[in-house]
Amino acid sequence: MFRRTAFAALAAVAALALAGCGDGTPAASSPGNGSSTPALSGAVNVFAAASLTGTFTQLGKDFEAAHPGVKVTFNFAGSSALAQQIEQGAPADVFASAAPKNMDDVKDKGTPTNFVKNTLEIAVPKGNPGKITGIKDFADKNKKIAICAAQVPCGAAAAKVFTAVGITAQPDSLEQDVKAALTKVSLGEVDAALVYKTDVLSAKDKVEGIEFPESSKAVNEYPIATLSKAPNPDGAKAFVDYVLSDKGKAVLTAAGFDAP
């Protein structure tokens, strides 16, 4: 018990120190222009939602190019799993979550900023063999349908959509994450699944997207924040700034994310 208290105290000191430093560093004033921040070095550990895998990998490379000597390492997984890992003391510098709720689960952090939002889209296999026309088909018992389980963010979003449309969905499977739902579509196992726009775009050679107006009822916000116990606070701050910079936004929107 003593040890935990001591650790928390240390963390608090570190957090204060981080806040104190952060205010004065030139990195904050010139986001995206890393060459003017000579202090950056070491590794930056970024814990990011699985749906950010493609874009953040790209951003990480760009960031490393802008800051020679800095190595960005990623841990991509479900947001809730990441939140738990961080709470259990995983050495993370930055957390980018696919839902505000998981961000809230993490206690010791800087102020989160919503950096993108993602809207749902109907994904159907190439050629639309199930002849899906719109969101109402999700209530059709004769269609093979996959949606995310209610426990994961994309499932919660899907539930909001169905309420807004006023239908009871008839899924054949409640997938454990959005990528699993997408896999079922790309293999043709289901006629349709409700996934994010970015996912449709990432599998565009196997999957077609069908937009629907009610998607605006369930917009998913992605918050990002530095962590108070970050082993590399300067690197953490610089990376978050880079994601929020115009360059970062360009990469994210190209992948189908909307600006917040």
Partner: peptide
């Protein structure tokens, strides 16, 4: 199981699947 058979309560949600999904919201 979750990849091949999917996850639907009463049809394909076995205990390990239920455990995994419960972990998402309520450990």
């Amino acid at each position: 199981t979750i990849t091949f058979a999917g996850n639907f309560p009463g049809r394909t949600t076995t205990m390990p699947l239920a455990v995994y999904l419960a972990l998402e919201t309520d450990p």
